[in-house]
Simulated scan of single mutants.
Amino acid sequence: MAFTTTDDGVRLYYEEQGSGTPIVFIHEFAGDHRSWPHQMRYFSRGYRCATYGARGYPPSAVPEDPAAYGQHRAADDAVAILDALGAEKAFFVGNSMGGFAALHVGLRHPDRVLGIVSSGCGYGAHPDKQDGFRAESETIAQAFENEGAEAMSEWYGVGPARVQYQAKDPRGHAEHVRVLAEHSNLGASLTMRAVQKSRPSLYDLRDQLAAMSLPLLVIAGDEDDGVLDTDLMLKRTVPRCGLAVLPRSGHVTNLEEPELYNRLLESFFTQVEHGGWGPRDPRSISGSTTGAK
């Protein structure tokens, strides 16, 4: 078991496999370091892959102080894993909560980033949805405190953007829900309040995102309604952003459609490494649909 210690003294558990250009995988709220099996197995053939548990997710430490959590901490922790690998730069790949973290790595530490993949990212970001998302986040935090992870996983695990995974792969979905059921109640409730509920809206960061020159691939499931509007905003805002929408898919696309997800990542990595993922051609940005004058 490998651990590293962050600059504020929190121990993070991580696993690594393979050699080559580093990829750091960042899990979603309902997951942990076990959330990337298909990607770790596939990409470790040609890359140095790392997956880790966020603070609050055993075997990583579970700080008791709410101030030890936050969106900035989530981004800095991903870079701490890169430091533990002894590498200067990496591709950062995150889903949902991890997708937000990957974007914030790009904003806070652009010199450490080769490229970003942000999937399932956007919940609560749209101004019309922010208040409702924060109220729901508080409800979930209280559920961990009052019901416990195992009980609440029975309903959280079959949310409207997770039933797609259940329908396609019942066994894989059951394993996914079991990971959620094993969460630390304290770590999950603090993460939900201090990271999820409290994170800044991506719409408020549009100026920073527009100035971000890093390659970005955004991936969404077409039935993950909570992210689609925000992901279109990211496509239209970040200069080097591509958007892939997976058909008949929900929130955990890396688990739900691993072959398609991996092909998208592989193409993205290859294009970035060969200088082929440049900014959008300005001629494609027009109020005209045909270019007629």
Rank of each mutant, 00 (worst) to 15 (best):
W155S: 03
A102N: 05
S96M: 03
E145L: 09
Y52C: 01
G99H: 06
P22N: 09
P170L: 05
A74R: 04
L246P: 01
G115T: 09
H183K: 06
T21Y: 04
G53S: 15
L103P: 01
G148I: 02
L114K: 11
S96Y: 07
L190C: 07
D229R: 13
S201P: 02
P258W: 06
P22T: 04
R108T: 13
D231N: 15
R73W: 04
K168S: 11
L12W: 01
E273V: 05
C121S: 14
L255D: 06
Y69T: 01
E175C: 08
G53E: 04
A244N: 06
L243E: 04
S118V: 07
V227N: 11
T4C: 13
F92Y: 12
M97Y: 02
Q130I: 15
Y57F: 12
P160A: 03
F25K: 00
V179N: 00
E147D: 14
Q39P: 05
Y123N: 15
G132Y: 11
G18I: 06
G124A: 05
Y52H: 02
S137T: 04
G187P: 07
F269E: 01
D76R: 10
S60E: 06
G276C: 09
D131K: 13
V117P: 00
V79A: 07
G172S: 05
A194L: 07
D83N: 10
H33S: 14
V195D: 08
E28K: 00
Q271K: 15
D77F: 06
R34G: 04
P127N: 09
H274V: 10
L114F: 08
Q271L: 15
G53D: 07
Y69H: 01
G250C: 09
A75S: 05
K235C: 11
G275R: 11
A167N: 15
D224Q: 11
A102M: 05
N146T: 13
E88T: 09
R11Y: 01
R206T: 14
Y57T: 05
A68I: 03
N95D: 09
W155G: 00
G122N: 09
P110A: 11
D225C: 05
E150I: 12
T191S: 12
E223S: 14
W155P: 00
S60R: 01
A54L: 14
L246R: 07
L217R: 01
I116D: 00
L12F: 06
F25D: 02
G226A: 15
Y47N: 09
W155V: 00
R199I: 05
P239C: 11
F269K: 03
E182M: 13
G157T: 08
T6Y: 03
Y52K: 04
M212V: 08
L228M: 09
R41F: 07
G18S: 10
D207S: 12
Q71C: 09
D128H: 06
Y261L: 04
T290I: 12
D225N: 13
T4H: 02
D281E: 13
R55I: 08
G132N: 13
P200H: 07
L114D: 03
Y123P: 13
R199S: 04
E28N: 10
S35C: 09
I23F: 12
A80R: 01
I285A: 15
E64M: 06
Q130F: 06
N262Q: 11
P258L: 11
I285D: 12
K89C: 00
D83S: 11
H126S: 10
Y261T: 01
E16A: 14
N254T: 10
V245H: 07
G250T: 08
T21A: 08
G287L: 15
